[in-house]
């Protein structure tokens, strides 16, 4: 069963980075995605609203060009994935339907050399950070396995980005537990009220607290939900001050 998919993908990302003498980051995870999913290139776009956003990293020139097009035109698979919050998988850009859907983006993306584009939101509920966009120079769908691996990589990249953007070093979810437990989402909501911050920062703070206290995030989340633990705004700059 694929309950171990996360563990397998994490191991792949770690090996891939180590093989090139790099430490794991959202960038090296993006590089690893190209090989694991068998695509031509990948890019990560950071967004704070549907019309804004910037390229975080691109593995090749086509990826960079696709991001420029999204930024300039405001349409395309990446823009739609962010807006809808669900994946947009386009196995053949050059179809009548896609020309109608994105009349400006499609011809320009074809010019740039892309034939298929797969956009995965970097999202956990109300936390919407951007999108992971994979592209191929040939047409053809992702397999079910590749879609599932891409979704897991998107989760991992979201997790790494939250660390990088806030400079709170938590690292990979080493306990191999996906961040998909109900209590973690509930605790994130509670902490956002306790600290008067958005859910994105609340999740970062929850993870930082767990890391500083060397406890699994799920255990800390359960304590928060059971009201055995409150996070204090005063601890903001010092993740090591625990309960």
């Amino acid at each position: 069963m694929s309950g171990d998919r996360l563990a397998r993908v994490l191991a792949y990302i770690a090996d891939d980075a180590a093989g090139r003498g790099a430490s794991v980051s959202s960038q090296t995870a993006c590089d690893a995605a190209v090989r694991l999913i068998d695509v031509s290139g990948a890019q990560v776009t950071l967004m704070n609203s549907p019309d804004r956003g910037e390229s975080r990293y691109s593995t090749d020139l086509i990826g960079g060009r696709l991001e420029e097009l999204r930024f300039a035109l405001g349409e395309g698979p990446c823009a739609d994935a962010f807006r809808s919050g669900v994946p947009v998988l386009v196995e053949e850009l050059d179809s009548g339907q896609n020309h109608r859907r994105w009349p400006m983006f499609v011809p320009a993306a074809l010019d740039a050399g892309a034939r298929a584009v797969f956009a995965f939101p970097l999202r956990s509920g109300a936390i919407r950070t951007g999108a992971l966009v994979l592209h191929r120079k040939r047409i053809g769908p992702l397999t079910a396995e590749q879609v599932a691996d891409s979704l897991v990589i998107a989760d991992v990249i979201l997790s790494l980005l939250l660390d990088e953007l806030t400079r709170v070093r938590v690292g990979l979810p080493v306990d191999g537990v996906p961040m998909s437990r109900g209590e973690i989402h509930q605790a994130t909501g509670m902490v956002s009220v306790q600290l008067g911050v958005g859910v994105e920062e609340a999740l970062v703070r929850l993870r930082a607290h767990a890391f500083a206290n060397e406890r699994p995030v799920i255990d800390v989340a359960r304590d928060v939900v059971a009201r055995r633990l409150r996070l204090n705004p005063a601890d903001a700059s010092d993740p090591s001050s625990g309960d």
Partner: peptide, 15 residues
């Protein structure tokens, strides 16, 4: 993802 939203919102309201 709809379920994640609801869990986060439950947490906000609970607190």
């Amino acid at each position: 993802q709809g379920r994640v939203l609801i869990e986060q919102a439950k947490g906000v309201l609970a607190e």
